[in-house]
Design a protein around this nucleic acid. Structure first.
Lengths: 342, 342
DNA sequence: TTGAAAGCGTTACCAT
DNA sequence: ATGGTAACGCTTTCAA
């Protein structure tokens, strides 16, 4: 009872290998009786169509690449991955993951080696900036290249992005409209290779503050701390070291906001009693602590990206190859008009 | 400038296709000069060895399957996946994901269809119980089957598990030793198909309590709530509805403990002032809120599983095919001797 | 060191 | 409805 191949099945079923093949992939071309017999025998012999052979024959690889910043374990990456997987898997594709395409060294290695060349049917680039030369390298693969939250659409066949700048502009504006006078924006520094969203969000904050000058008399400040596992603690001490504690905190992301809310409380600063705070992402536990935040839906973005990829792989044209979605304000309970005391 | 194949490269480099092949996969068999020329031309023509063809020829698929409960987005699954990926990807394998192999319907579909038959070089089963018949189906694939946190090792070629029962026994014992008298164990119900860890942990709690009877005069209770997105809120209200609020809470997992700590505070119950609480997992934000918990490291378990798989694929024997690791108590600040007031 | 050729397991065209 | 056969792109003996 070793591994049976298509010939064994054909022989046992007394048909040709063509018929065996068709019984699996084009059942409608085979008589019901023959098909039943073939499938039954195949099952008995533990036979199944080989994806490698199908791939070779078809010229497709049934594999797509997903390039990402940092690790798959981050909330954003996991969500995007799950979204892509939810559509690509049923369509017969595996996802080949390339993590940490962010450090200079890894980028160089990846783009000069280009292991995916001739080995994927599409490429997803998740949430980081790639330079024109790198985009060009991807174009040479001659497969669809789909960007997810890439700062630019140049050279991509399709993109789906969240408007980070506008989202943060709205978040900031919300705090300003609440009457806050002293707004701090704690953020972890962008890596050597820009993480697009980090910079765009900061720009949104700054622009909102500048636009408000004159109309509102606000005192605003960007509090930049080194990236790394302790970024939230760094931001915490930077905040506590301020001459005057702000009345509003506008956070680059929930993973900054949540620890701040929790830890500031130990130092006597409670939201919304003492200050307002807004996050960005609506990631896990944002709801648990009632964090007002800007929601984005990376799972949905992954699905949109996969939809585009599937169409492009099929040779279809996209009506709207480049899409931008907006972050949505989720009002909860960490923001309150300036001066209000709960 | 279309897609060049191995013949084009061979022609351009004035060598045979054998030499082109060897230049990529057995460089030591090709003279330095020839190799350089071939690789240079290959690069110019955007050529690369096709993994599908290599796979077909070699008889391997360079693909492994990972079967899981629920979604890849859960903390445990993401960590295990990342651990497996960290070793399998560099070794040239893609991971084919099969999520939700938990409902009766999906299981039936998967195991009767068995799409991975002849299409993977190994199978990882992450954290759920599969019945003897299903294990047998997997064995018929004739590839290594590696279990991660499976309740039993029967039928598996290798397993790596955390001792959930012992871990929870230790957690409970810790609370008992602290002198607590009234201990509640809130947990979400196991699914129709057992999630192994859910049940083992409950057993550990119960056994620890029973073992303590006589020596300690404790009042313990399992508080079972329906699984689903609102399980933490369900547990919260069940706790608040108790005749008497417990002095210690032993949680099935951090995702139960964290919301409880946060939300109980709004109802006047603060840890460690009013009650002790211990979690399980050491998952995100456990450190942020200083939750005392039992740590497990699913990323490391994924790596161990991948190491075993790689060896088995290579035909090596495993010295210790079945490994069990223990959860480790991480003392932080949500536990305190009974009666202590902070 | 290099080349020729067989074969891996399919699919699809062309026959029947 | 079914069968024969070439071809997909590689790897690997065997020869030179």
């Amino acid at each position: 009872m070793g591994k049976a191949d298509i010939h064994d099945v054909a022989k046992a079923a007394d048909v040709s290998i063509s018929t065996v093949s068709r019984a699996f992939t084009r059942p409608e071309l085979v008589s019901a009786k023959t098909r039943r017999k073939v499938l039954e025998i195949a099952d008995k012999l533990d036979f199944n169509i080989s994806r490698s052979a199908t791939a070779l024959k078809s010229g497709q690889t049934y594999r797509v690449a997903m390039l990402m910043n940092e690790e798959i374990t981050s909330w954003f990456n996991t969500q995007v991955f799950a979204g892509i997987e939810s559509l690509m898997h049923p369509a017969g594709y595996d996802i080949s993951l390339f993590q940490h395409i962010d450090t200079a060294q890894n980028r160089h290695e990846f783009f000069s080696e280009l292991p995916i060349r001739r080995n994927v049917d599409a490429v997803f680039v998740a949430s980081f900036a790639i330079d024109p030369h790198e985009v060009e390298q991807l174009q040479r693969l001659r497969v669809p290249v789909i960007g997810i939250n890439t700062p630019s659409s140049d050279g991509f066949d399709a993109t789906i992005s969240i408007d980070d700048e506008k989202g943060m502009y709205k978040a900031t504006q919300h705090l300003i409209n609440l009457g806050h006078k002293h707004i701090v924006y704690p953020c972890s520094e962008a890596a050597e290779t820009m993480d697009s969203s980090i910079d765009s969000r900061a720009r949104g904050f700054i622009r909102a503050c500048e636009d408000a000058q004159g109309k509102h008399d606000i005192n605003w400040q960007v509090l930049s701390v080194p990236r790394g596992p302790a970024f939230a603690d760094s931001a915490l001490s930077a905040l506590l070291n301020l001459d005057e504690f702000p009345d509003a905190i506008c956070c680059q992301m929930d993973m900054m906001a949540i620890p701040l809310v929790l830890k500031l409380e130990r130092y006597g600063h409670r939201t919304p009693r003492d200050y307002s705070i807004i996050g960005f992402d609506d990631s896990p536990y944002a709801d648990t602590i009632n964090l007002t935040t800007m929601r984005q839906d990376p799972y949905a973005m992954g699905r949109i990206a996969a939809t585009k990829a599937l169409k492009l792989i099929n040779g279809e044209q996209l009506i709207t190859p480049y899409e931008v979605v907006e972050a949505q304000l989720i009002p909860r309970s960490t923001d309150v008009p300036y001066g209000d005391v709960i």
